[in-house]
């Protein structure tokens, strides 16, 4: 992998944009530009800012530049039989770790090994004024200062330009299998509850009356777990497709919605795919989003439009006005002139 540090050039570019009051669209691999609203401004590419800053496999922490492609990072980790702690989507070989963090999606491993933000220990960023800042660190426990590193995850690049991040990594599983079980959703959910913490389940999704369970870990434990849960051998690549939003369901037309609900919410005919052991439901739905929002609200959940035809609509509906104003002030604290990805999450910032 190429090892290039462009931090100073990137900071200078942001500083110049700040001085000129000219917004920038942060890009790298360009595989996530369809997420969020259409931002204003000229593209500023982080793609050349690549390489591993520090990696000590015995610490299970890697510090990597944001422009590094996911596949290149995984190759480096793989040589030490390590992997990222959570499933992180990638949409082509060009997808970068910086882009993944900016959009902040976590794949099917979410209920079992945490969210992508949970794997973040620290970050170096360029603020909206062009300053290079470091938050967090390379250790698991760190309570000095506000947790700005974690705040960056899922902020769609609106709070800062990521330079490099320190991530927790994990040991690569010796064995991984997928088992399919024909069950109704209630029975499937109850089974997942029984297995959680007792069996090496690392992913569980439900579609068309079939529960798909991914088991991963040491050979002995995976073999024993297969015996216990039964079912039939499933498609080994299913969870990779799910992680990357590929496969038959994701090729259907319509806006792609995520509904985040309590995991025991009933199966709804509108949704064709349940992930995260029940807590994440995918819907294909276009037009007035009211039914989606109402469905989420019924279960005290949330709805997020992940991909939509109308780029004037953002991923998240505006929260209560006072909270919206608070978020706008947080944005202004990090990026006072709204230089970075202006309009990507919400209009005007």
């Amino acid at each position: 992998m190429k090892d290039h540090d462009h931090a100073l050039a990137l900071a200078a570019a942001v500083r110049a944009a700040y001085d000129a009051d000219a917004p920038l669209e942060i890009v790298a691999g360009g595989t996530r530009r369809a997420f969020g609203r259409s931002p204003a401004g000229a593209p500023l590419s982080v793609a050349a800012h690549t390489g591993i800053v520090e990696y000590d496999p015995t610490e299970f922490v890697v510090t990597v530049r944001a422009g590094t492609p996911m596949v290149a990072l995984e190759e480096v980790l793989g040589r030490e039989r390590q992997v990222l702690m959570v499933d992180v989507p990638r949409f082509s070989a060009a997808s970068t770790i910086g882009g993944a963090l900016a959009i902040g999606l976590t794949g099917p491993s979410r209920p079992y090994s945490g969210a992508l933000r949970d794997a973040v220990l620290g970050a170096r960023i360029v603020s909206g004024t062009g300053e290079i800042l470091r938050f967090g660190g390379q250790v698991l426990k760190n309570v000095a200062g506000f947790d700005v590193a974690r705040l960056m995850v899922g902020s769609y690049g609106t709070l800062g330009l990521l330079l490099d991040v320190s991530l927790r990594v994990a040991r690569c599983a010796d064995a991984e299998v997928v088992r399919d079980l024909a069950l109704d959703w209630r029975t499937a959910h109850a089974a997942l509850r029984r297995w959680e913490g007792a069996l090496p389940v690392t992913g569980a999704c439900y579609a068309d009356g079939v529960l798909h369970v991914r088991l991963a870990g040491r050979e002995e434990r995976v073999a024993a777990a297969c015996q216990i849960i039964g079912g039939e051998a499933g498609e080994p690549t299913l969870f990779h497709e799910l992680r990357d939003l590929r496969g038959p369901f994701f090729s259907q037309p319509g806006d792609l919605w995520r509904l985040l609900v309590p995991s025991d919410a009933p199966w709804d005919p509108q949704e064709t795919l349940i992930d995260w052991a029940g807590a994440q439901r995918f819907w294909r739905f276009s037009g007035d989003p009211q039914p989606v929002l109402e469905h989420a609200a019924r279960y005290r959940g949330q709805a997020m439009r992940l991909l939509g035809a109308d780029r004037s609509q953002g991923p998240w509906a505006a929260p209560a006005p006072a909270t919206m104003a608070l978020m706008a002030r947080v944005k202004a604290a990090m990026d006072p002139r709204a230089i970075l990805n202006r309009g990507r999450l919400y209009p005007d910032w």
Binding site: R110, R150, S155
Partner: peptide, 8 residues
């Protein structure tokens, strides 16, 4: 339910 939010 899963801790997600527009800004964390």
């Amino acid at each position: 339910p899963t801790g997600e939010a527009p800004l964390d």
